[in-house]
């Protein structure tokens, strides 16, 4: 297995405005678009719907052509050999998870409101997602508290995940990904939270992307920051 830097680059960046469906049926597309819009809703800022999260998820689920963007964002890495086999198998599993998950979501919607998920009001959709997830809708983060947790793997990998947690993960990925993957249209997701990312992945490769303006400079000396240095001045090597 050679370095990914040497893998063949195929395809091109995904067009976020595309309405072409590579994996979803029309009904599945509409259902996922509606559900992601409840996971990251539209308010005074854009949400998952405007950022085209559904395009990101459709392309991701469609096969193995959109798994790893090329480092310069010009297209995607071509997966080959056992690596391709493994990803094909993984994606097949996730496709089944989505197909069945969408059917189950509609089933819950029909039981409670006698209509498909897409035909419900936003409040009704939230109620369906609560039932579906088996937990109340998450409440707002409050300050002034300490809330302990135990160790967990801070991963972004979806292998073996059930539908709703996978959908929540993929919605966040589609909202905050590099736009080459089809979501985060016009950096909408990044702008909502104040992350000033690279204009393109190429800018991270050639030094164009620069975060210097976000560094605080000149206000402090090292001795202000590290009092130990006042009594123990830094000795450059070799002196």
């Amino acid at each position: 297995m050679t370095l990914k830097a040497d893998w063949e680059i195929v395809g091109s960046p995904i067009d976020p405005d595309s309405n072409e469906r590579l994996f979803f049926t029309a009904h599945e597309w509409a259902t996922i678009e509606a559900a992601t819009a409840r996971i990251i809703p539209t308010d005074h800022d854009p949400g998952a719907r405007e950022a085209r999260v559904v395009v990101f998820i459709d392309r991701y689920l469609s096969g193995i052509d959109h798994v790893f963007a090329a480092a310069d964002g010009s297209g995607f890495l071509k997966l080959t050999g056992k690596f391709a086999e493994a990803w094909r198998s993984r994606m097949w599993d996730m496709q089944q998870t989505y197909r069945q998950g969408i059917r189950d979501l509609d089933e819950v919607a029909r039981q409670s409101h006698d209509a498909d998920f897409t035909d419900l009001t936003e409040e009704q959709q939230d109620a369906v997602l609560e039932t579906f997830s088996g937990a109340p809708k998450p409440s707002k983060v409050t300050l002034g508290t300490t809330e302990a947790v135990t160790t967990f793997l801070q991963g972004t990998f979806d292998e073996g995940m059930s539908f709703f947690p996978a959908l929540c993960l993929h919605t966040k990925q589609g909202f905050y990904c590099d736009p080459v993957y089809g979501g985060n249209k016009d950096h909408m997701g990044w702008k909502v939270i104040g992350f000033v990312g690279p204009k393109s992945l190429k800018d991270t490769m050639d030094g164009t992307y620069d975060t210097t303006p976000y560094f605080m400079e000149g206000d402090y000396t090292w001795e202000d920051l590290v009092p130990h240095l006042r009594d123990h001045p830094f000795q450059p090597a070799g002196e």
Partner: peptide, 20 residues
Amino acid sequence: HPVNWVFPGRPSWGSALKDA
């Protein structure tokens, strides 16, 4: 980074997630 920022207890969905 935004896609997986480390905030254990980050709300999983809805306006609470977006606000957080």
